[in-house]
Design a binder for these strands. Structure first.
Length: 388
RNA sequence: GGGGGAGUUCCAGAGCGGUUAAAUGGGGCAGACUGUAAAUCUGUUGGCUAAGCCUUCGGAGGUUCGAAUCCUUCCUCCCCCA
């Protein structure tokens, strides 16, 4: 890849707001990228290793109607590696997804693989979870790798601050993330996209659960004038009220006219609450991972499909679901697949859960445009979160 | 017909005189999972009027302070030789 330069003020992404709720900070917008547009609020299925686990692209597009998916820098760098990705012509062509992609930077792995890495101001040295080999990640090469992956939205390299976390650590962690951000921006700005579509860089707010640090971090991030801004370091074990408090605080500081992305969140309730606080974008492994483990989110509540009670329930998985699996397979059949450890069970559950999550954010958008989002959210959430 | 082996809690299978309601798997039941080291992990799995008691290791007797473990006998199954 060559070192190039960008036209001043060029923004590879547009964001517009079509409407907002009357009794909350929820808004309905549209993000336009070179690979397609995204109506917000949006849920982005996680496709860490270049695949939304157990789901075909065809299902993602036609049934689930996902408008953007994730990839992960750390995982794709280790496998298949940047040589294969560039040879393929980028991740879009490699995994046959012609809509937008967002790549996480590996900042979450700084947290989740903390036992396997050494963090310094320079960057992070990871010991591969695959073969133990050592790999240095810096703000600079993380930008380069994300250029080679070719995501439409790339994330700044950060440290997802753990929880609980003492104040001193939270300060140092946020400072590292901020220093890294400047290096990310510098490198990103001096390099060019490789595959003919524009890319944008989202910075990430940290600050753990401390209001002053969150505010400081949000102001720092906001000052960069990025195309969109992310909130990281939440949903790592803190109480929900704390997560909402931090989200509300940060949203009040981040620019109104740019999309806000709450990383790693969450449950259906988390998502609706955060939309009300002004968040536009979400991603979470919950619908796929929990789906593979037998947990179904439905319009009627939450189901553990492995439970004996579904053994002879021949009703649809979700009578109100819009995805083809919802009405074509029974709960009894899906339970059988899980009990028998048949892989189709994981596939059906993943398609269903993602279909449900995308349905949920589409509903949210409709109610925001109608102006009754807050009341709809309050009456809907208890039903969605009840255990069946 | 002759010789040998085995029957243990839902299943397989340890245990071979007391620390055994009985290892370990599996199965069953339940729980967890939030920018994916996860098609993963954890708990539990005889009964009860539960810090205690009752029933349980093919059946019935017996030895012993004490038996799933030793003896007698019966039943059932498996293998080898005719």
């Amino acid at each position: 890849m060559g070192i190039g330069y960008l036209c001043a003020n060029f923004d590879g992404m547009e964001f517009s707001i079509q409407g907002s709720d009357t009794k909350s900070s929820a808004r309905a917008g549209t993000i336009i990228t070179d690979n397609g547009s995204i109506e917000t609020p949006i849920f982005m299925p996680v496709g860490t290793a270049g695949t939304v686990k157990a789901v075909h692209q065809r299902e993602l597009k036609d049934d689930i109607a996902a408008s953007i998916i994730l990839g992960n820098t750390y995982h794709l760098y280790l496998r298949p590696g940047t040589d294969i990705l560039t040879e393929a012509g980028g991740l879009h062509r490699f995994n046959n997804w012609n809509r937008p992609i967002l790549t996480d930077s590996g900042g979450y792995q700084v947290y989740s693989l903390s036992a396997r890495r050494k963090l310094s101001d320079e960057g992070v040295v990871f010991q591969s979870h695959i073969d133990g080999s050592r790999h240095r990640f810096t703000p600079e090469n993380v930008m380069d790798i994300q250029r080679m992956i070719g995501a439409d939205i790339v994330m700044a390299f950060d440290e997802c601050t753990p929880y609980p976390c003492d104040y001193g650590y939270a300060v140092r962690s946020a400072e590292i993330t901020h220093r890294w951000l400047d290096r990310c921006i510098a490198r990103f700005d001096e390099t060019m996209p490789l595959y003919g579509h524009q890319q944008v860089l989202f910075p990430i707010v940290q600050g753990s659960t401390y209001r002053d640090l969150r505010a400081l971090s949000a102001e720092t991030i906001a000052s960069k004038g990025a195309s969109g801004n992310a909130i990281g370091g939440l949903s790592v074990g803190e109480p929900h009220e704390v997560m909402y408090e931090m989200t509300q605080l940060v949203c009040s500081i981040l620019p109104f006219d740019k999309p806000r992305y709450l990383m790693g969140v969450g449950t259906p309730a988390n998502i609706l609450e955060s939309i009300a606080l002004g968040v536009d974008m979400f991603d979470c492994v919950m619908p796929t991972r929990n789906g593979r483990n037998g947990m179904l989110f439905t319009s009627e509540g939450i189901i553990n499909i492995k439970n004996e009670k579904w053994r002879d329930d021949f009703g649809p998985i979700d009578p109100n679901g819009l995805v083809f699996v919802d009405c074509q397979y029974s709960r009894a059949y899906l339970r059988h697949l899980f009990v028998a450890k048949e892989m189709l069970g994981s596939m059906i559950a993943s398609v269903h859960n993602l279909g449900f999550y995308l349905w949920l954010v589409r509903q949210a958008r409709e109610h925001i445009l109608k102006g009754d989002f807050a009341s709809w959210k309050n009456e809907t959430t208890p039903r969605l979160m009840q255990r069946l």
